[in-house]
């Protein structure tokens, strides 16, 4: 887990920046005003999560983290689709 070199520091700083962006997006989740605004914000947070996990994989030299990023990306997509389907036909998720 050691962090060495300029590149790794830059990658970690970028990851922290993306998490800061996610903190800003929480404002949109709280403020709304519609359900879809919140889903858009959570979708953006999920894609930020994928980027953060990929950056951490490179910075900490743990390529296994990319698998987590892949799983997160797929399930984030699933979540967005499920919620948008749910808001149209209530209860029609499964």
């Amino acid at each position: 887990m050691a962090v060495s070199g300029v590149v790794d520091t830059v990658l970690l700083a970028a990851a922290s920046a993306f998490v800061l962006f996610a903190i800003v997006l929480v404002y949109r989740i709280v403020a709304g005003p519609t359900m879809q605004d919140r889903v858009i914000a959570v979708n953006a947070i999920g894609t930020n999560a994928v980027v953060v996990l990929a950056l951490l994989a490179a910075a900490l030299d743990q390529p296994g983290f990319l698998d987590i990023a892949l799983v997160y990306g797929m399930l984030n997509f699933l979540m967005s689709i499920a919620i948008s389907k749910f808001t149209v036909e209530r209860g029609g998720v499964i």
Binding site: L25, I29, V30, V39, A41, V42, I83, F86
Partner: peptide
């Protein structure tokens, strides 16, 4: 509750 679920996903 739906909003809370969305926030929980975040």
């Amino acid at each position: 509750v739906l909003n809370a679920i969305i926030a929980f996903g975040a």
